[in-house]
């Protein structure tokens, strides 16, 4: 490149145009919005990320619908209808790994250091990351819904009830994403973050009612599978999408699922924020 000729006048330190006017909350929201925007743009430019959040869930739908589905029998419901709630939850659970990986990368590329030195809200990095992951999850569940319809999935209740089921899953995903933020902020690099996430992810996702009825599992596993939050969320959203097939329709599963999500969020969000403040 040619030698730079910088006009000093243009670089002169100015009177600060930044206007700290406006409430802290307003700036906190604005900053979270900016970081969300940045994460979403960044995300659309990583081919791996797009693959894992779109192609992979589609493959799971097809795998369980056509490969394993033939041998799994769930009384009173077609397997493709049973399957979809499980795929939704499994997808957003796996997607939460990207919260860990994204934060670990920001940390190690020095971006968080730059953020620490800017007059932005302290909450914005975590809020922006989890919100971007939420937005991505919305896109992904809509995509899976479309693929599900193509392979025979039909909502048995009402569209409104189906949307309520999706919201239940998205809220849970949002809470879990804050938990995975802690892993991302604690890992020594993004590969470690990814590895550390899976031992948490696997038992919760697969020892659940996602793909098979828990009654088919051995007793000791059943006890875990029935009571763990992932199953609760799957059961509740499944009821909202299909109506009560196993239990009588009752809202108690929905409330339990909401309490799990809210409870997880209340516990992990402050830990994540505390961890973030110590990352410098």
């Amino acid at each position: 490149m040619t030698a730079l000729t910088v006009d000093p006048a243009l670089l002169a330190p100015g009177r600060r145009e930044s206007h700290p006017g406006g409430s802290r909350l307003r700036w906190a929201l604005s900053d979270a919005g900016t970081v969300t925007w940045r994460n979403l743009i960044s995300y659309t430019r990583i081919p791996d990320a797009i693959f894992f959040s779109s192609v992979q869930p589609i493959m799971f739908v097809l795998l369980f619908r056509y490969v394993f589905g033939g041998v799994i029998h769930v009384p009173g419901v077609t397997y493709v209808n049973y399957l979809m709630a499980g795929v939704f939850v499994q997808t957003v659970m796996f997607g939460a790994v990207s919260t860990s990986v994204g934060l670990a990368e920001d940390l190690h590329k020095g971006l968080i250091e730059r953020f620490h030195a800017l007059p932005m809200a302290r909450s914005a990095v975590l809020a922006g990351r989890t919100t971007a992951d939420l937005v991505r999850n919305v896109g992904v569940v809509l995509l899976i819904t479309a693929v599900g319809y193509l392979v025979g999935f039909r909502v048995q209740t009402s569209p409104l009830s189906f949307v309520a089921g999706l919201l239940l899953i998205l809220f849970f995903a949002y809470a879990v994403s804050w938990g995975f933020a802690i892993i991302g902020l604690s890992a020594s690099n993004s590969e470690t973050a990814q590895l550390a996430a899976f031992p948490v992810l696997f038992p919760l996702t697969f020892a659940s009612s996602a793909f098979v009825p828990v009654t088919s599992m051995p007793g000791w596993l059943q006890a875990f599978a029935i009571h763990q939050p992932v199953s609760q969320v799957i059961d509740a959203s499944r009821e909202l999408m299909l109506g009560g097939h196993s239990n009588l329709w009752s809202m108690s599963d929905v409330w339990q699922s909401l309490s799990w999500s809210a409870g997880i969020l209340v516990v992990v969000a402050p830990i994540a924020v505390w961890r973030y403040r110590r990352t410098a």
Binding site: E17, S18, H19, P20, W27, S30, D31, T34, V35, W37, R38, R114, F115, L118, P119, M120, A124
Partner: peptide
């Protein structure tokens, strides 16, 4: 991004 996070107009 940095401009917005610096709260510049």
């Amino acid at each position: 991004m940095v401009g917005r996070l610096t709260h510049l107009p």
